[in-house]
Design a protein around this nucleic acid. Structure first.
Lengths: 116, 116
DNA sequence: CAGCTTCGTTACGCTACCGTATCGGTGAAG
DNA sequence: CTTCACCGATACGGTAGCGTAACGAAGCTG
């Protein structure tokens, strides 16, 4: 199910959704934080700090800090891996799912409202 | 030309493009900065600080700072309005157009590559 | 056990953004 | 000319991000 977008549709959609996010949601997630959050929720677990860092080509402290921030927002949770206690497993939360659901609705609505 | 997206397509696209931006482009624009940049390039001029602030429901210093940063990156330029010298007109640049063209390609490519 | 690797986290100095408040500069009205 | 309204920029204190480097805890190897 590939998606064929025109240049106008692509940038128009990005514009509408970005503006909508800025106007509606006070939380100002970084592009990196957004990428991390989506990775956690859209890719099957388990997720580790090291794995996320490699997947996004950023350093580990970037992940740790992002998890700190998004954890304080209630969007994710961390838990020690009991099988290898060096690892930390990142887990999803209800609030995080709700947040992405909201984003999803915004994207779909703005896509539907693309002006001709 | 409305665009009908499924939930999976919407979040998948957002995920792929966000990750691509993080990995490929060193510039880490804030969501707000991105919204401002797209507003400047997709909406017919003239653009003023006050107008952008109102359009995005943010304060004026946010716009001034974003223009400082993106100006240093070469993405936009500022110029006094000679007809009413209180105003500042924000203008597009070649580099800014190239940057958005790159983003556009990324969105289109990732949309096309959405996994079934 | 000692030695080494692999985790995630923390420390450090730095830069950039935030919101509020204020500041010059400009235009318009009395 | 004085006064007032408006626009963008700046100052300020606070917060949060960055990259590099070092750290403690946990596993692995011999």
């Amino acid at each position: 199910m590939p998606l064929e977008l025109s240049a106008s549709q692509a940038l128009g959609l990005w514009h509408a959704v970005s503006s909508g996010q800025v106007k509606l949601d006070g939380r100002d997630l970084t592009l990196r934080q957004m990428a991390i959050l989506l990775e956690i929720y859209l890719v099957p677990p388990p997720h580790t700090v090291r794995g996320l860092a490699a997947k996004l080509s950023v350093t580990k402290p970037v992940i740790t800090r992002a998890l700190d921030t998004m954890g304080a927002m209630g969007l994710v949770t961390r838990q020690r891996d009991e099988r290898d206690r060096r690892n930390v497993v990142i887990q999803r939360t209800v609030d995080g799912a709700l947040y992405l659901e909201q984003l999803c609705d915004l994207i779909i609505d703005q896509g539907r409202a693309l002006k001709p």
